[in-house]
Amino acid sequence: MTPDVPPLLDEMTEQARHYLATHGIQSPIVVGIHSGGVWIAEHLRERLGVQRPLGRLDISFYRDDFSRIGMHPQVRPSELPEDLDGEHVLLVDDVLYTGRTIRAALNELFDYGRPASVTLAVLVERDGRELPIEAAIVGAHMELGKGEQIKLRGPEPLHLVRATVEPEDDTDT
C-alpha cells in the first residue's frame, strides 16, 4: 500500500536526468525544503552527481497560515549558499499536497535573487491541490482518501507512513 522510498528515488533520479538533459541544464542548484525535502534533496544531489552545495529552505516565515496558527516552534535558518541570479534551481520536497508550501518556497527563493528557472521535484504527488502548482519530477502519484495523510519519516531509514488525521489538522504539504 505505502511505497518504499528507494525505488521512488531511482525513479526521480531518472526523470531528473532526462529533464535536465532535455532542458540543457548543466549544473543546477539543488534546494530542499525542511525537513523531508532536504533528505530527498541530499539523495538526489548525490545520485545526479551535482557538485554544488545543497540549499535548504525553511519556509516558516513565508507561510500563509501564520495568522491562523502562529509561529512554528522550531524554525531553522534557510541556507542558500550561492547567489541565485540566473541559476537553474531544482526545488525538492517530500510530498506535494495543497501546493501552499511550494508557493511559500517560491516566494522565499525570489528573495535570494532571480533564478533562470525553478523545477519542482517531489517524492510523492497526491491529490488535494489548492493552487495551480505541479511537479515536473515525481517519484509516485497517490490518490488518498479524505482525511488521509502521507508523511516522510527519516532520515535513516527514509520511509513513508500513511495515517488518518483529524479534520482540524491543517498540515499543508
Binding site: 516565515f61 513565508y62 501564520f66 542558500l80 547567489d83 516566494n107 522565499e108 525570489f110 528573495d111 535570494y112 535573487g113
Partner: peptide
Amino acid sequence: KAVKKVPL
C-alpha cells in the same frame, strides 16, 4: 538575502 524582508 537580496531582499532582507519576510512577509510574516
